[in-house]
Structure formats: C-alpha cells, structure tokens
Amino acid sequence: MSRRVAVVGAGWAGLACAVQAVHAGHTVTVFEAARTPGGRARRVEADGGLALDNGQHILIGAYRATLELMRSVGVDPQQVLLRAPLALRFPDGGGLAIPAGMKPPMDLLAGIAGARGWSWRDRYSLLHTALRWRARRFACAPEQTVADLCAGLRPRVVDELIAPLCVSALNVPV
C-alpha cells in the first residue's frame, strides 16, 4: 500500500530514507530547515564567495552503502568523485602519503615504509594493526570505538593518521 511519507532532514540519512521509501512505492516529501540540502555534507559559501566544506571531507571506499545509494539514484561515483591517493602530510614534512599508480596492498606498504618522521616502531604498529583488521575482514562490533580498534597503534600514528581521518571522514574525534 502506497503512503505519503514525510522525511525531516535532507542530509545523507534523510535522503537515503527518502530513496528507500520511494523504492518501496511511497510518495515522499523531504523537509529541510537549511537553505540547501546536504546536512553536514553540503558546501557553504563564506563571505567573499569562498566555498567551504561544512563537514564530511572524505568519502572513503568503505562507505559501501553511500556509494550504492549514489548508484541507485543514477549517480556514478566513478564519474563524480575525485579519487586521490591518501596523503596526510604536515608542515614539517612528516606524515603518510600513499603513492599513486601502485596496486593494493603494495601502495599501502610503500606509503608506510616511506612515512616521514615515523620510527620503525610506528610503521610496525600500523602494519601489525592493519593485518589484524584485515584478518577480521575489516569487521568490528557496533559498540567498538575507533580508539578500541586502534589500541595497538603508537601515538604518532594515531595523531598523524587516525585522528585526521576520523575528523575528515566521520566528523568526530577518535
């Protein structure tokens, strides 16, 4: 039975809800308090015409449901997203950069090996932890925090890799 559905909020979650409801045969009206849709993933114009990202800075490949949502409404992620190798460099030159043009997992290994300012213990902690994540098929319990998942990482790796990714991809601290 088709129903009229109201969705409050035109961010990722609200729009995903609206798409699911339409696919289920319902008539949907989306309400948004802001002038533009997108929630935390929208662009904001600052004084002087400068465009600022309002929240989510990175859409990583692990966001399978988000990428599938894009495809379900006719958007090809390969055509609209800027794909770039991960590069988290700091003003002092330190940090991690994954080289372009290499196939996984060799690209990650090369990036870790070449991480500037990282000790061999830092590099080993990331390799060891990443192998543990892979052995678990990158799955974790819903109640696990990023801090729990990264318990074996050295502080510099957390500060220079994990913390920036949390803020840019999840908009939350570790």
Rank of each mutant, 00 (worst) to 15 (best):
Gly55Thr: 03
Met1Phe: 15
Gly117Tyr: 02
Arg42Asn: 07
Pro77Gly: 07
Thr129Ala: 13
Gln144Glu: 12
Cys17His: 08
Met1Ala: 15
Ala6Thr: 13
Arg137Trp: 06
Ile58Lys: 00
Leu15Arg: 01
Trp12Pro: 02
Pro155Thr: 04
Trp118Cys: 02
Leu127Gly: 05
Trp120Thr: 14
Gly101Pro: 05
Val167Pro: 11
Val44Arg: 14
Pro37Arg: 00
Val22Leu: 13
Ala115Asn: 05
Arg136Lys: 12
Asp107Tyr: 02
Trp120Leu: 15
Arg89Phe: 04
Ala84Asn: 11
Leu82Ala: 14
Val167Thr: 14
Val172Gly: 09
Ile162Pro: 01
Val7His: 00
Val158Lys: 01
Asp122Lys: 00
Leu50Phe: 14
Ala163Met: 08
Trp12Glu: 03
Cys166Ile: 11
Leu52Glu: 12
Leu170Ser: 03
Leu127Phe: 06
Gly38Trp: 01
Asp107Trp: 06
Gly152Leu: 12
Ala62Arg: 07
Ala6His: 13
Val167Phe: 10
Arg136Leu: 15
Tyr63Glu: 02
Gly101Leu: 08
Asn54Met: 06
Pro142Asn: 11
Arg3Phe: 08
His23Trp: 11
Ile162Asp: 10
Trp133Gly: 13
Pro77Ala: 08
Leu86Asp: 09
Trp133Ile: 14
Glu68Thr: 12
Met70Asn: 04
Ala62Val: 13
Gly14Phe: 03
Pro142Trp: 06
Val75Phe: 04
Pro142Ala: 07
Cys140Met: 08
Arg121Asn: 12
Ala34Ile: 10
Ala163Gln: 05
Val19Thr: 14
Pro173Glu: 01
Arg134Gln: 14
Val44Ala: 12
Gly114Pro: 08
Pro142Ser: 12
Val73Arg: 13
Lys103Ser: 09
Gly93Ala: 10
Gly117Asn: 00
Leu59His: 05
Arg137Phe: 03
Ser119Arg: 05
Arg42Met: 11
Ala65Val: 09
Ala21Asn: 05
Phe138Pro: 01
Pro77Ser: 14
Arg134Val: 09
